[in-house]
Structure formats: C-alpha cells, structure tokens
Design a protein around this nucleic acid. Structure first.
Lengths: 146, 146
DNA sequence: ATGTAATAGTTGATTTTGTAACTAACAAGC
DNA sequence: GCTTGTTAGTTACAAAATCAACTATTACAT
C-alpha cells in the first residue's frame, strides 16, 4: 500500500502547517464571517489597526506580509462599512493613515475577545512551555526570526 | 502605540500558523508551478497518489481534508496531462480508482525529492526532538477542530 | 418492487484572489 | 527646469476558490 520511500505527506512541514492553519482558522473564520460579513484579509487589517491604532496600508503590508492589492480591497470594504477612516498625511499626499472608527473599535474588541478565548481553547491542555516553543518556531518559519 | 490589552496578532495561533504555512510553502510552490505548471491542489493529489499508489477521490478528500470539487478539478487536470489514469471499480460504478501513470510517477519522484530537500533545509539547525514535537503538535491542531 | 435517502463525482454561477498595468505623488540627478 | 526612477495605492482582467445544484448510481426501508 505504501511507497518504498519512507517520506510521507505527514513529514512534509509545509503540508502539515497548511493543514493545521486551515483547521485552526476554520471555526474562528466563521465567527467574523457570520457576525460581520468579513473576509480574512479584512479581519487581518482590522486586527492590526486595533492593535497599532494608526497605520498606513504599506505598514500593514510589511507587518502582516500581505500584498498591497489585498490591503487596498480590504481597506475599501472596511471603509464602506464605516469601520475605519482614512486620514491624509501632512507632507506626503500619496500616503493614507488608517484608523478605526468607534464602530470599528467595537467590532475589533468583540472579535479580539473571541480570538483570545478561541486561542486559549486551542492550547488548552498543552504545557505553557510547549506553546511558547511552538510560537517561536512558527515565528521563525514565518520568517520574522523572533 | 500599543493597545491596552496585551493580546497581539503574534499571540494568535491561527494567525501564526497561517503566516508560517504561507511562508514555508512559497518557495516549494514555485517549483511545481514553474517546472510542471501545477497548482497546489494538483500537487496534493499527486503526492497522495505517489504515496498510496491507488486511491479514489473520496479517499484523497478524507485524508487530505480537501473538498470534493477541488479534487475533481485537480484530477481532471492531472488526467489531461496524462499524469494519472482512472480505473472503474468492479462493483460500484460511481467510484473511480486513481493511479499515476509512469510519467506521473516520474514527476512525483522528482517533486518528492525536492520536497525532501526543502523540508530538510527548513528544519536545519533545529534539534530533532523539537522538530518531532512540532510535528505532533501540528498534527493535533490539524486533526481536531477545536 | 418501489419510493426515499445517501454517496461519488461533476458542473455552473458567484466571489475572491493574483498578476500586471495603471495613476498620482515624490525624489534625485543633471 | 526637466528627465528618470521610486513609492503609495488603485483598477482591470484572468485564474481560482466556493457553494449550491446537478447526474448517476447504490443502499435501504417498507
């Protein structure tokens, strides 16, 4: 039934990572989708603005490793829903500073709470030390060498 | 600059997992794309057939956690390129047993080699024990939706 | 045997993403 | 001043994912 080689899909790290990422995102994804009709990229932008209060699209792109077109469209939809506003930059008229509206902050606060609970449930039962090691390995693999 | 809460994107496991998964898949993705014009779902199906020699679409779906439309379309393209063939089932005429052609096996062997090397490079420097623990944690996270 | 449900896999309509080209603004060299 | 290059962000079109509906076949209960 098995190939001669001992290499299995389960040994291939990118595959395992994708499986784990998809499975672990699924349930939470449903929350922001059902509750606010948001897409993943919109959630990511919202999350970043919730944490770093004021960012440009490029800054979000650099930090979240998202392509600028994804950000552009996510920002557009979040702006339509009045979850964020765009501010001009004093010196550089190409730049837009993004900030959550009070409504956007409310949505963020709600989802952050869900995310926190969800995250806690995910690592429940695992030793704190293992979780810490997992996170640092994932950060390393993600390429931001933490 | 930071929100009052101490919850960061980097603490949210699904986010970290997605970042790591995307980053770690990128380079390998380019190989099967550039070398064989394959998509990720096609690579996944090819990989499974390379390992388990003979599977139905449903079996692949169950094992790889892929939706049947993804598999259907991936199989279609792989069949067009003569990387696999479909065999009738003796008893059940709904079922198709899939198998790689010699050409398909050659492509699989090539890509498996690349995958192995790539995987080795990814975990290079990390203690064997840590890698094993990472894999088992990822399997756990991939396995159960909570 | 016959009606109903379930399963394998495909197809079509709509959404979402990805790639590349685009506009607008700034910056640097001459 | 001009030309050239770079950066911020948008838009257009093609590729792909998603979701639901569909065909064909088998299973199961009455």
């Amino acid at each position: 039934m098995r190939d001669t080689s001992d290499f299995d899909v389960q040994d291939f790290l990118p595959y395992l990572l994708n499986q784990a990422a998809e499975a672990s995102s699924l349930e939470f994804q449903r929350v922001y989708k059902d509750r606010y009709g948001m897409l993943r990229n919109e959630w990511r932008v919202l999350f970043h603005l919730g944490i770093y209060t004021r960012m440009t699209a490029s800054e979000i792109g650099a930090r979240a490793q998202m392509h600028k077109t994804k950000i552009s469209r996510a920002v557009q939809r979040l702006a339509e829903r009045r979850y964020l506003v765009r501010h001009r930059d004093g010196g550089d008229r190409r730049v837009e500073h993004l900030e959550l509206t009070p409504m956007g902050r409310k949505v963020y606060a709600d989802l952050r709470g869900v995310a926190q609970d969800y995250n806690d449930a995910l690592v429940e039962g695992l030793p704190q030390e293992d979780v810490q090691r997992l996170k640092s390995m994932l950060s390393m693999l993600a390429g931001r060498h933490a």
